[in-house]
């Protein structure tokens, strides 16, 4: 067989992680181009998991933070427990547990008022793992937002009271923007490490059907085949460093928007802090 040019390789494997293109993965004579293309194709899944979990998680996190700050124990306690369970246990175990629970759902589907709801799709990574990541990031973010809510300056709230703002409008105009502003640097870290955590998905029970996996799945495939870890893993590293830089840039822009009313010498820059595995 003619060796493929790099362009042909990209055409064949660029969307391999979605099941488009060449069916068989390369088996011998691995080129650098194949490494970059396949691992890059796997990054589609990392971005998919990260973006959607972050997006949905943001809303749940706000609700949870408010619930945790609430005075009524009926809303506070469940939120506290939810946050404790998801922050206190390893994400790896959460993935395993969720997968085993989803597998136990009846194969034929669940009958809800005459309509049969399929269950097989929930054991697939795109749904099951996304759901776990969504709950997990919601718990971590909720703790961040809760801490930020508690540190809203007293004067801000008093000023709102003086202007006659109460209830929902006080929350929407004063408390919520300030909470976001204060929590944003920590939330940026959370976002970065959520993207890092997406690499766990295909190593934790969720199978990669027809070898459709994420970046680390393909890197691991190459390392297993070539016995050479010095090429595929640094490539994953490279992709993730670029992704991290992109995220920092994006979140910094939002940070600047949130802090736009402050004098420029008070607008803090986002600092990366170590907070890694969940």
């Amino acid at each position: 067989m003619e060796p493929m040019t790099c362009l042909e390789t990209i055409q064949a494997y660029g969307l391999r992680s979605l099941g488009i293109g060449e069916r068989l993965l390369p088996r011998s004579d691995f080129t650098l181009c194949q490494h970059f293309t396949l691992i890059g194709s796997g990054m589609i899944w990392n971005i998919y998991f990260g973006v959607l979990a972050l997006l949905f998680g943001f809303f749940l996190a706000n609700a949870l933070a408010l619930a945790k700050a609430s005075r009524s124990p009926w809303t506070r306690k469940p939120a506290e427990w939810f946050i404790f369970v998801f922050r206190g246990s390893p994400l790896f175990i959460q993935f395993f547990l969720a997968y085993e629970m989803l597998v136990l759902l009846p194969k034929a589907g669940i009958n809800v008022m005459g309509i049969t709801v399929e269950t097989a799709w929930t054991t697939r990574a795109w749904a099951g793992a996304l759901f776990v990541l969504f709950l997990n990031t919601a718990a971590y973010s909720a703790e961040i937002f809760y801490g930020a809510l508690k540190s809203v300056p007293k004067g801000d709230v008093e000023a709102a009271d003086a202007y006659g703002l109460t209830g929902w409008s006080r929350f929407r105009r004063i408390l919520w923007p300030t909470m976001l502003r204060l929590g944003w640097p920590a939330y940026t870290n959370e976002a970065i490490f959520l993207f890092h955590a997406t690499t766990l998905v295909f190593f934790s029970g969720f199978p990669a059907f027809q070898q459709k996996g994420d970046a680390l799945y393909y890197a691991n495939y190459f390392a297993d085949k070539t016995f050479n870890p010095f090429i595929p893993y640094p490539i994953v590293g490279l992709y993730f460093i670029s992704l991290t830089l992109l995220l920092i840039w994006l979140f910094n822009r939002i940070n600047r928007y949130l802090n736009r009313h402050l004098p420029s010498n008070l607008q803090g820059r986002i600092r990366l802090r170590a907070q890694v595995i969940r």
Binding site: T199, L216, A223, P229, F230, T244, L272
Partner: peptide, 19 residues
């Protein structure tokens, strides 16, 4: 170590150290 998922390091070092 901060820019790259730690699991990448785990998978990498197991083989790299051994080799």
């Amino acid at each position: 170590v901060r820019g790259v998922p730690d699991i990448v390091y785990f998978l990498f070092f197991v083989i790299a150290l051994d080799q």
